[in-house]
């Protein structure tokens, strides 16, 4: 497994109607790297529309950036040989935001696990495959008999999201790209999920890019944090440093805008909405279509 995932000057533009120059820049000259060892958790925080999901799609090879490159083991992921591509696919895996839409309603939930087994040749017999599936489900604290053979609508959001984690557990990638994986889960299930991620880091040495707009989960996970606004990464550092001594004005504003966990401090200083807007005027909600066909 390659040891590094790197973004070099990645830019992603989308055609948009009703904007001055005919396109919006969702990701603007973003460079950063993630190391597989030591395994770490790097959070990417920013408000809605700042380009977080687009970065995730670029890293996962689902969207080719308009400029710059995503490198896996030093090579552009869109120019890999067959064998390198297979390795990259196995080694960089996602957990998406919506636990409902991630399952094709037509099939039972087991299918995503069997598909992963088959496509990545993890087991040569069905019995062995089932064994792996059950082991991975237990690793994410799911009882196989409670989920196998069910349709997605028969499971809770937390269960479904943990099936995605079980899939990751089976594949053992070096990198997990988690795009707001807990934003649709309630507080208790959320903690559960984060604990499993931390578990994966320590037990299986997985590095996670954790995308979120929620600073309390960033606190909880620890590790490093990157702050993104308007498609640009403005700050990166250990969570404690960035949280306590933010260097960029946007980070300060972001920190001010969340209620403190300490009840005495809650909402002491109010910030006006237009203050946020001035620093980060949200991208125009325009009728947009991708510049390059998504493929």
């Amino acid at each position: 497994m390659k040891s590094e995932l790197e973004l070099r000057g990645v830019q992603q533009r989308f055609h948009a109607r009703g904007v001055a120059d005919g396109y919006i820049t969702a990701v603007d000259d973003v460079s950063f790297s993630l190391a597989a060892s030591p395994p770490q958790i790097v959070s990417l925080v920013g408000q809605s529309g700042s380009g977080k999901s687009t970065i995730a799609r670029n890293v996962l090879g689902l969207q080719k950036p308009t400029a710059g490159s995503v490198l896996y083991g030093g090579k552009d992921i869109f120019k890999l040989s067959r064998a390198e591509y297979d390795e990259y696919r196995r080694d960089v895996q996602p957990v998406f935001q919506d636990p409902y839409a991630i399952f094709n309603p037509f099939y039972r939930v087991d299918r995503v696990l069997w598909k992963a087994l088959k496509k990545f040749k993890l087991a040569d017999t069905r019995a062995k495959g089932l064994e792996l599936i059950e082991e991975s489900l237990r690793a994410v604290r799911l009882e196989p008999e409670n989920v196998l053979g069910r349709y997605p609508h028969q499971l809770s959001g937390g269960q479904r999201q943990r099936i995605m984690l079980a899939r990751v557990h089976m594949l053992r990638p070096s990198f997990i790209i988690a795009d707001e994986p807990v934003s649709m889960l309630d507080a208790q299930v959320r903690k559960h999920f984060l604990d499993i991620l931390l578990d994966f880091q320590t037990k299986h040495g997985m590095t996670t890019l954790f995308i979120t707009h929620d600073l309390s989960t960033v606190y909880y996970l620890g590790g490093e944090v990157m702050v993104i606004t308007k498609g640009q990464i403005v700050e990166r550092g250990p969570v404690s440093t960035v949280m306590h001594e933010p260097s960029h004005p946007y980070t300060k504003l972001l920190l001010d805008s969340i209620p403190q966990p300490d009840p005495d401090q809650r909402w002491t200083s109010r910030i006006a909405v237009d203050e946020l807007e001035r620093v980060d005027d949200a991208n125009p909600a325009a009728d947009t279509k991708p510049e390059a066909p998504i493929l």
């Binding site: 998406f96 991630i102 496509k119």
Partner: peptide, 8 residues
């Protein structure tokens, strides 16, 4: 997307 990252 999930199918694509599963090499479909």
């Amino acid at each position: 997307d999930l199918a694509r990252v599963s090499k479909a």
